[in-house]
Design a protein around this nucleic acid. Structure first.
Lengths: 120, 120
DNA sequence: TTTAATTGGTTGTCAAAACAACTATATGCC
DNA sequence: GGCATATAGTTGTTTTGACAACCAATTAAA
Protein backbone atom coordinates (compact mmCIF):
# COMPACT_ATOMS: atom_id res chain seq x y z
CA UNK A 1 0.00 0.00 0.00
CA UNK A 2 2.88 2.34 0.79
CA UNK A 3 4.28 1.58 -2.65
CA UNK A 4 0.95 2.41 -4.25
CA UNK A 5 0.90 5.70 -2.34
CA UNK A 6 4.43 6.51 -3.48
CA UNK A 7 3.78 5.59 -7.10
CA UNK A 8 0.73 7.84 -7.09
CA UNK A 9 2.83 10.64 -5.53
CA UNK A 10 0.42 10.82 -2.65
CA UNK A 11 3.20 11.68 -0.21
CA UNK A 12 1.43 9.90 2.59
CA UNK A 13 2.80 7.34 5.02
CA UNK A 14 0.78 4.31 6.08
CA UNK A 15 0.73 5.67 9.60
CA UNK A 16 -0.72 8.96 8.43
CA UNK A 17 -3.25 7.07 6.36
CA UNK A 18 -4.33 5.08 9.41
CA UNK A 19 -5.23 8.35 11.12
CA UNK A 20 -7.04 9.75 8.10
CA UNK A 21 -8.90 6.45 7.80
CA UNK A 22 -10.58 7.07 11.15
CA UNK A 23 -11.20 10.75 10.47
CA UNK A 24 -12.91 9.85 7.20
CA UNK A 25 -15.26 7.71 9.26
CA UNK A 26 -15.76 10.41 11.91
CA UNK A 27 -14.34 13.89 11.53
CA UNK A 28 -13.55 16.30 14.34
CA UNK A 29 -12.53 13.87 17.06
CA UNK A 30 -9.80 14.36 19.66
CA UNK A 31 -6.22 13.13 19.55
CA UNK A 32 -7.05 10.81 22.42
CA UNK A 33 -9.86 9.27 20.38
CA UNK A 34 -7.40 8.74 17.54
CA UNK A 35 -4.96 7.12 19.95
CA UNK A 36 -7.55 4.53 20.88
CA UNK A 37 -8.67 4.00 17.32
CA UNK A 38 -5.15 3.44 16.02
CA UNK A 39 -3.56 1.74 19.06
CA UNK A 40 -0.95 4.45 19.52
CA UNK A 41 0.24 6.37 22.56
CA UNK A 42 -0.20 10.09 23.00
CA UNK A 43 3.28 11.24 21.97
CA UNK A 44 3.06 9.24 18.74
CA UNK A 45 -0.28 10.86 17.96
CA UNK A 46 1.02 14.35 18.71
CA UNK A 47 3.72 13.86 16.10
CA UNK A 48 1.49 12.18 13.56
CA UNK A 49 -0.94 15.08 13.81
CA UNK A 50 2.00 17.50 13.61
CA UNK A 51 3.05 15.95 10.32
CA UNK A 52 -0.47 15.70 8.96
CA UNK A 53 -0.95 19.37 9.80
CA UNK A 54 2.33 20.30 8.08
CA UNK A 55 1.14 18.34 5.04
CA UNK A 56 -2.07 20.38 5.06
CA UNK A 57 -4.29 17.35 5.59
CA UNK A 58 -5.77 18.11 9.01
CA UNK A 59 -6.32 21.09 11.26
CA UNK A 60 -6.24 21.30 15.06
CA UNK A 61 -8.89 23.37 16.77
CA UNK A 62 -9.65 23.82 20.46
CA UNK A 63 -12.71 22.07 21.82
CA UNK A 64 -15.33 24.48 23.19
CA UNK A 65 -16.51 22.09 25.88
CA UNK A 66 -13.12 20.92 27.16
CA UNK A 67 -10.23 23.29 26.78
CA UNK A 68 -7.68 20.48 27.12
CA UNK A 69 -8.84 18.87 23.91
CA UNK A 70 -7.77 19.41 20.31
CA UNK A 71 -10.37 18.50 17.78
CA UNK A 72 -8.79 17.19 14.59
CA UNK A 73 -10.62 18.04 11.40
CA UNK A 74 -9.98 17.08 7.81
CA UNK A 75 -9.03 19.69 5.23
CA UNK A 76 -10.43 19.73 1.70
CA UNK A 77 -7.11 18.31 0.53
CA UNK A 78 -7.64 15.27 2.75
CA UNK A 79 -11.23 14.84 1.64
CA UNK A 80 -10.07 14.96 -1.97
CA UNK A 81 -7.84 11.90 -1.62
CA UNK A 82 -10.26 9.73 0.36
CA UNK A 83 -11.58 7.73 -2.58
CA UNK A 84 -8.14 7.20 -4.09
CA UNK A 85 -6.82 5.92 -0.77
CA UNK A 86 -9.79 3.67 -0.21
CA UNK A 87 -9.20 2.21 -3.64
CA UNK A 88 -5.56 1.46 -2.90
CA UNK A 89 -6.53 -0.09 0.43
CA UNK A 90 -9.05 -2.49 -1.01
CA UNK A 91 -6.77 -3.37 -3.93
CA UNK A 92 -4.07 -4.23 -1.44
CA UNK A 93 -6.35 -6.38 0.65
CA UNK A 94 -7.47 -8.22 -2.47
CA UNK A 95 -3.89 -8.82 -3.56
CA UNK A 96 -2.85 -9.92 -0.09
CA UNK A 97 -5.67 -12.42 0.28
CA UNK A 98 -5.61 -13.85 -3.23
CA UNK A 99 -5.99 -17.62 -3.11
CA UNK A 100 -6.85 -17.72 0.59
CA UNK A 101 -10.12 -19.37 1.56
CA UNK A 102 -12.61 -17.18 3.44
CA UNK A 103 -12.97 -19.73 6.19
CA UNK A 104 -9.22 -19.73 6.72
CA UNK A 105 -9.16 -15.94 6.88
CA UNK A 106 -11.78 -16.14 9.61
CA UNK A 107 -9.76 -18.67 11.59
CA UNK A 108 -6.72 -16.44 11.19
CA UNK A 109 -8.59 -13.41 12.49
CA UNK A 110 -9.87 -15.31 15.51
CA UNK A 111 -6.41 -16.63 16.34
CA UNK A 112 -4.80 -13.21 16.06
CA UNK A 113 -7.53 -11.62 18.16
CA UNK A 114 -6.96 -14.27 20.83
CA UNK A 115 -3.21 -13.68 20.76
CA UNK A 116 -3.82 -9.97 21.11
CA UNK A 117 -6.07 -10.56 24.13
CA UNK A 118 -3.57 -12.99 25.65
CA UNK A 119 -0.74 -10.48 25.49
CA UNK A 120 -2.76 -7.37 26.39
CA UNK B 1 8.92 -10.24 25.48
CA UNK B 2 10.32 -6.72 25.52
CA UNK B 3 8.72 -6.24 28.92
CA UNK B 4 10.31 -9.44 30.19
CA UNK B 5 13.67 -8.22 28.91
CA UNK B 6 13.20 -4.87 30.65
CA UNK B 7 12.05 -6.39 33.93
CA UNK B 8 15.12 -8.63 33.92
CA UNK B 9 17.31 -5.57 33.20
CA UNK B 10 18.61 -7.28 30.09
CA UNK B 11 18.90 -3.97 28.25
CA UNK B 12 18.12 -5.60 24.96
CA UNK B 13 15.63 -4.60 22.29
CA UNK B 14 13.54 -7.16 20.45
CA UNK B 15 15.31 -6.18 17.26
CA UNK B 16 18.71 -6.81 18.82
CA UNK B 17 17.41 -10.12 20.15
CA UNK B 18 16.31 -11.12 16.66
CA UNK B 19 19.89 -10.72 15.48
CA UNK B 20 21.37 -12.59 18.44
CA UNK B 21 18.78 -15.32 17.85
CA UNK B 22 20.35 -16.13 14.49
CA UNK B 23 23.91 -15.78 15.74
CA UNK B 24 23.14 -18.26 18.51
CA UNK B 25 22.14 -20.69 15.78
CA UNK B 26 25.20 -19.90 13.65
CA UNK B 27 27.99 -17.66 14.86
CA UNK B 28 30.40 -15.69 12.67
CA UNK B 29 28.14 -14.92 9.71
CA UNK B 30 28.13 -11.70 7.67
CA UNK B 31 25.83 -8.73 8.04
CA UNK B 32 24.30 -9.62 4.70
CA UNK B 33 23.44 -13.09 6.01
CA UNK B 34 21.81 -11.44 9.01
CA UNK B 35 19.85 -9.15 6.71
CA UNK B 36 18.34 -12.15 4.96
CA UNK B 37 17.69 -14.02 8.17
CA UNK B 38 15.89 -11.11 9.81
CA UNK B 39 14.21 -9.52 6.76
CA UNK B 40 16.03 -6.22 7.20
CA UNK B 41 17.87 -3.98 4.76
CA UNK B 42 21.58 -3.26 4.95
CA UNK B 43 21.44 0.12 6.64
CA UNK B 44 19.19 -1.26 9.39
CA UNK B 45 21.64 -4.08 9.99
CA UNK B 46 24.62 -1.74 10.07
CA UNK B 47 22.99 0.18 12.90
CA UNK B 48 21.74 -2.88 14.74
CA UNK B 49 25.26 -4.29 14.70
CA UNK B 50 26.60 -0.88 15.76
CA UNK B 51 24.38 -0.93 18.82
CA UNK B 52 25.06 -4.59 19.61
CA UNK B 53 28.76 -3.83 19.41
CA UNK B 54 28.38 -0.80 21.69
CA UNK B 55 26.51 -3.05 24.12
CA UNK B 56 29.42 -5.48 24.05
CA UNK B 57 27.33 -8.33 22.67
CA UNK B 58 28.98 -8.87 19.27
CA UNK B 59 32.25 -8.11 17.56
CA UNK B 60 32.92 -7.26 13.91
CA UNK B 61 35.93 -8.83 12.25
CA UNK B 62 37.08 -8.73 8.66
CA UNK B 63 36.59 -11.84 6.59
CA UNK B 64 39.82 -13.34 5.35
CA UNK B 65 38.35 -14.60 2.10
CA UNK B 66 36.37 -11.47 1.16
CA UNK B 67 37.60 -8.14 2.40
CA UNK B 68 34.21 -6.54 1.86
CA UNK B 69 32.62 -8.71 4.50
CA UNK B 70 32.33 -8.24 8.24
CA UNK B 71 31.93 -11.44 10.18
CA UNK B 72 29.80 -10.91 13.25
CA UNK B 73 30.72 -13.01 16.26
CA UNK B 74 29.13 -13.34 19.68
CA UNK B 75 30.96 -12.20 22.80
CA UNK B 76 30.95 -14.17 26.03
CA UNK B 77 28.42 -11.66 27.36
CA UNK B 78 26.03 -12.61 24.58
CA UNK B 79 26.59 -16.32 25.07
CA UNK B 80 25.84 -15.88 28.77
CA UNK B 81 22.32 -14.56 28.17
CA UNK B 82 21.31 -17.09 25.51
CA UNK B 83 19.42 -19.44 27.83
CA UNK B 84 17.66 -16.61 29.66
CA UNK B 85 16.49 -15.12 26.38
CA UNK B 86 15.37 -18.43 25.01
CA UNK B 87 13.33 -18.94 28.19
CA UNK B 88 11.61 -15.58 27.81
CA UNK B 89 10.89 -16.33 24.16
CA UNK B 90 9.21 -19.65 24.77
CA UNK B 91 7.30 -18.27 27.79
CA UNK B 92 6.01 -15.51 25.55
CA UNK B 93 4.94 -17.89 22.82
CA UNK B 94 3.14 -20.03 25.38
CA UNK B 95 1.32 -17.01 26.82
CA UNK B 96 0.45 -15.70 23.37
CA UNK B 97 -1.01 -18.99 22.18
CA UNK B 98 -2.85 -19.96 25.36
CA UNK B 99 -6.27 -21.36 24.49
CA UNK B 100 -5.60 -21.51 20.77
CA UNK B 101 -6.01 -24.88 19.09
CA UNK B 102 -2.96 -26.28 17.32
CA UNK B 103 -4.88 -26.84 14.11
CA UNK B 104 -5.96 -23.19 14.11
CA UNK B 105 -2.37 -22.05 14.65
CA UNK B 106 -1.40 -24.09 11.59
CA UNK B 107 -4.13 -22.51 9.48
CA UNK B 108 -3.02 -19.11 10.69
CA UNK B 109 0.59 -19.78 9.72
CA UNK B 110 -0.40 -20.97 6.26
CA UNK B 111 -2.59 -17.92 5.68
CA UNK B 112 0.11 -15.49 6.79
CA UNK B 113 2.71 -17.23 4.67
CA UNK B 114 0.42 -16.97 1.66
CA UNK B 115 -0.18 -13.27 2.35
CA UNK B 116 3.56 -12.75 2.59
CA UNK B 117 4.08 -14.49 -0.74
CA UNK B 118 1.23 -12.53 -2.34
CA UNK B 119 2.74 -9.20 -1.36
CA UNK B 120 6.39 -10.05 -1.96
C1' DT C 1 -13.47 25.07 48.63
C1' DT C 2 -9.14 23.84 48.38
C1' DT C 3 -6.33 19.95 47.52
C1' DA C 4 -5.55 15.50 45.09
C1' DA C 5 -6.06 12.63 41.23
C1' DT C 6 -7.21 12.14 36.40
C1' DT C 7 -7.22 13.37 31.60
C1' DG C 8 -5.46 15.61 27.18
C1' DG C 9 -1.60 17.03 25.12
C1' DT C 10 3.54 18.29 24.36
C1' DT C 11 8.62 17.73 24.52
C1' DG C 12 12.91 15.06 24.85
C1' DT C 13 15.63 10.95 24.13
C1' DC C 14 16.79 6.66 22.05
C1' DA C 15 16.14 2.70 18.83
C1' DA C 16 14.55 1.40 14.59
C1' DA C 17 12.66 1.28 9.41
C1' DA C 18 12.64 3.01 4.76
C1' DC C 19 15.05 5.05 1.16
C1' DA C 20 18.79 7.32 -1.39
C1' DA C 21 23.51 8.06 -2.11
C1' DC C 22 27.93 6.65 -1.41
C1' DT C 23 32.71 3.84 -0.92
C1' DA C 24 35.30 -0.28 -1.46
C1' DT C 25 36.01 -4.83 -2.91
C1' DA C 26 34.93 -8.77 -6.14
C1' DT C 27 33.60 -10.79 -10.27
C1' DG C 28 32.59 -11.22 -15.32
C1' DC C 29 33.59 -10.17 -19.83
C1' DC C 30 36.12 -8.32 -23.78
C1' DG D 1 44.77 -6.16 -18.24
C1' DG D 2 40.83 -3.02 -18.04
C1' DC D 3 36.11 -1.77 -17.77
C1' DA D 4 31.32 -2.70 -16.34
C1' DT D 5 28.58 -4.71 -12.99
C1' DA D 6 27.42 -6.79 -8.68
C1' DT D 7 28.06 -7.27 -3.75
C1' DA D 8 29.11 -5.71 1.25
C1' DG D 9 28.85 -2.21 4.08
C1' DT D 10 28.30 2.86 5.70
C1' DT D 11 26.21 7.48 6.20
C1' DG D 12 22.42 10.85 6.01
C1' DT D 13 17.61 12.12 6.32
C1' DT D 14 12.82 11.54 7.59
C1' DT D 15 9.14 9.20 10.04
C1' DT D 16 7.75 6.47 13.64
C1' DG D 17 7.39 3.90 18.33
C1' DA D 18 8.36 3.41 23.26
C1' DC D 19 9.04 5.60 27.43
C1' DA D 20 9.69 9.28 30.85
C1' DA D 21 8.78 13.78 32.31
C1' DC D 22 6.14 17.55 32.06
C1' DC D 23 2.12 21.28 31.82
C1' DA D 24 -2.67 22.61 31.80
C1' DA D 25 -7.40 21.77 32.40
C1' DT D 26 -10.91 18.95 34.58
C1' DT D 27 -13.03 16.15 38.03
C1' DA D 28 -13.31 14.00 42.60
C1' DA D 29 -12.75 14.06 47.46
C1' DA D 30 -11.76 15.80 52.08
Amino acid sequence: MQKKFNTADLNLTIEQWSVLYHLWKEDGISQQDLCQATFRDKPSMTRLVDNLEKAGLVKRSASKTDRRKNLITLTEKAKAIQDTCHGFASETVDEALAGVRDADIEVCKVVLKQVYENLK
